[in-house]
């Protein structure tokens, strides 16, 4: 268990050092075996992680990594969690309990069946959108910008489809539009990160 935790800390320390200091990360990893032989793997790994973390704010690449994680963990994952929980709780939850608010009695009567029929599909679309957003967060951390762009476009298409369907059914689109706006900001931030990453001019990982 101690060895497993130590290896996890070493992996994290190497990730914190980034692409620009990959050789130093490999050097620390190579010394890890000596620390294991000496019976002090955890002390060594914790020290490497502390050293790598302390270096992050003072280096451009470190600041880039911190920003990537902040975007993924503080914006992307929470939005994905909102989507998944909304899908799990059902579409009325996404609509804030105000389904069909703008419709007349006649419209409600006409559209009621259509809304009931569309509900599961919309919930599934929202669930898939949440899951794909989790993947988008992972791709951002992996700096796989090509796949991140394709995934982001797919999520945006899903949310746009949802807004159109909700509008056709005379349902409140307020929360879905907010979600789409948040996704738009998220994609703009990812584009900014991509540009920053290109400016760093790092060797391929």
């Amino acid at each position: 268990m101690k060895l497993l935790l130590s290896r996890a800390l070493m992996t994290l320390a190497c990730r914190c050092l980034g692409e620009g200091r990959r050789e130093w990360a490999q050097a620390m990893l190579a010394e890890f075996d000596a620390a294991v032989d000496d019976g002090r793997p955890l002390t060594f790994a914790a020290g490497c992680l502390a050293g790598a973390l302390c270096q992050m704010p003072v280096r451009d690449e470190g600041r880039f990594i911190l920003t990537s994680y902040a975007l993924a963990l503080m914006i992307m994952v929470p939005i994905a969690a909102v989507e998944i929980s909304s899908a799990a709780l059902g579409i009325p939850h996404l609509l804030g309990g105000q389904a069909n608010i703008g419709a007349t009695y006649a419209q409600k009567l006409l559209m009621g069946e259509a809304i009931r029929a569309a509900g599961p599909s919309l919930a599934l679309l929202l669930l898939l959108s949440g899951i794909v957003q989790m993947r988008l967060a992972w791709l951002t951390l992996e700096r796989d910008w090509v796949r991140a762009a394709a995934t982001g476009t797919a999520v945006l298409a899903a949310i746009t489809t949802m807004i159109l369907v909700l509008g056709c059914l005379f349902l409140d689109i307020g929360q879905a539009v907010t979600l789409g706006g948040a996704l738009g900001i998220e994609l703009a931030l990812i584009a900014g990160l991509r540009s920053w990453h290109a400016d760093l001019n790092l060797p391929p990982y």
Binding site: A27, E31, A34, D38, G47, C48, C54
Partner: peptide
């Protein structure tokens, strides 16, 4: 000298030694 040997020789922890070496 290897990094771990330097740690033992100097009494520095890895979190101090490697940033110094870098």
């Amino acid at each position: 000298h290897h990094g771990y040997d330097l740690m033992k020789d100097t009494g520095l922890l890895s979190g101090t030694l490697y940033p110094l070496l870098i």
